[in-house]
Amino acid sequence: MVSEADSDEALMELVKSRDQDAYARLLDRHMGSIYAYIYRMCQHHNDADDLTQETFLRLWSRAATWKSGQVQLTTWLHRIAHNVCVDTFRRRGPDDYAEIDPDTVAVTDDVPDDDRRRAVHNAIANLPERQRTALVLCQLHGWSNKDAAEVLSVSVDALESLVARARRTLKRELSAYQREICT
């Protein structure tokens, strides 16, 4: 249980007055979740490091723009992380992200774990960016559709549509591996 003095809101007020200890506590509290989100979005260890750092530097430099009561800090942070990822993806262009190799999702009777992981990795990486975000937040982070919709600044209906399309695409791409798991 987080006390009121140790709440995100209280710590953010301290961060606004440039309190580095409060910032470090927020970093401890939220870095794991933000790192996991970014890693699942970009699927690259070094990129995840850099983009997580950029997200938390923005938390520091833009702390004054966060308004308590308007949006939860974790939602705001994920929105920053999302924007950082999207900016980076757009700057680099689609060529930096490998197309799905059809061979990696071929039907086989004996699928080693590494192959399956690689196939899942490729299938997620090749989803359109908004579908990927929706899937990562709802499916892998366990967020509610409402909270994920806030990060993407879309309606809940639109978010549900994004999640459903992402899941259908992945099910289609990964059907061979899914069959292997179910049997």
């Binding site: 580095q20 910032y23 470090a24 970093l27 401890d28 870095m31 790192y35 996991a36 890693y39 699942r40 260890h45 995840a48 490091d49 997580t52 750092q53 938390f56 530097l57 399956r116 992981r117 196939a119 899942v120 990795h121 997620i124 499916q139 892998l140 899941r167 992945l170 099910k171 990964l174 591996y177 899914q178 798991i181």
Partner: peptide
């Protein structure tokens, strides 16, 4: 399917990232 996704998207531990940011 959910289990397969969760199992296949293991997130590594960020090394020295906290210190770097601070």
């Amino acid at each position: 399917f959910d289990a397969m996704l969760a199992d296949s998207t293991h997130v590594p531990v960020a090394f020295r990232l906290r210190a770097r940011i601070l």
